[in-house]
Design a binder for these strands. Structure first.
Lengths: 158, 158
DNA sequence: CTGGCATATTTGAAGCTTAAAATGATCGCA
DNA sequence: TGCGATCATTTTAAGCTTCAAATATGCCAG
């Protein structure tokens, strides 16, 4: 209907992709060099940090990270091997509950602070107006994407 | 200096990441379902399409895709197996030149048209103003990121 | 020419990711 | 009680990605 369809949307998408892959590469590189870790592991630690003492089941973690259960299996195995998370058994023996260990929690705090600093550096060239505008428009883009995905689901489901 | 440092930049980054991963997942899913292909393979085909008859060496392709040489080795092996690209030997026997085959070129044309349509759908909820604004601000973000990366390189090199 | 450095590509090991199949456990209900 | 559906997780196979090491070729100084 409006101008987003076609070439203009494609150009927009390529720009967004260029930005986000550049940031992801750099953040991934620093996580590896400074902490011997990775972005997916950082993301799981972050989800567990937010979850607090109760932790998350494997499935809940997968949902928050928007990845498959099998993916979380591998990440959790590595983080457990590093002593940063622990598994808790509940009454339902199907579910593994994941929780940060004390070292894991303090380790994540250091990584998160560094991470926030890196992002600040990478976007330091933007002014207040840019941040404001981008934030709002990206929110609209997110809604556009979500609505496009939802429409399709409805069609398929019908 | 300005408002991008700290929490505001972090929020911005998380929004951008949410948009771009949502689009990437959806495009990847459709490439797989409708063409039995993947985004990395599509990207290599795209680079070769732009390169025309002369094609690209493995190293040039890696540079354009911003991936390692070893990565291109695998992608090229699969695309050659599908008959979409071919390898040309030149006088320098170290270099493998990659080029689209005729079926590869027409296959890519179909995929690219579908791809453009998908992106248009996903961003269809944005108005002309959004596209315009986002494009410009993302360009500034890209410059900010690039300048942050370059500064670091300079420091390291000094 | 020839030994050694530089360049282009491939290989190997490790991790991330997915989809699909397999396991193991719970729950409803006949 | 026990069967079958369902649910949570793991496993498997395949592909993508990186880094580092290995291979193969080209080129130049002596």
């Amino acid at each position: 209907m409006s101008g987003a369809g076609g070439k203009a949307a494609l150009r927009l998408w390529l720009r967004m992709l260029a930005c986000s892959t550049a940031v992801e590469r750099e953040v991934g590189r620093r996580l590896r060099e400074e902490f011997g870790s990775t972005l997916p592991r950082f993301d799981l630690l972050s989800a567990l940090d937010r979850a607090g003492e109760a932790g998350l089941s494997m499935g809940e973690a997968a949902e928050r990270l928007r990845v498959t259960n099998g993916n979380v299996t591998g990440l959790a195995r590595r983080l457990e091997g590093e002593g940063l998370i622990e598994r808790l058994a509940g009454s339902d023996r199907r579910v593994q509950r994941l929780r940060l260990t004390a070292p894991g929690r303090s380790r994540f705090a250091v990584m998160a602070a560094a991470h926030e600093g890196w992002i600040g550096e990478l976007f330091a060239g933007l002014g207040d107006g840019d941040v404001e505008e981008l934030g709002g428009r990206l929110e609209r883009a997110r809604r556009s994407i979500r609505s496009a995905l939802h429409e399709e689901t409805v069609h398929e489901g019908a």
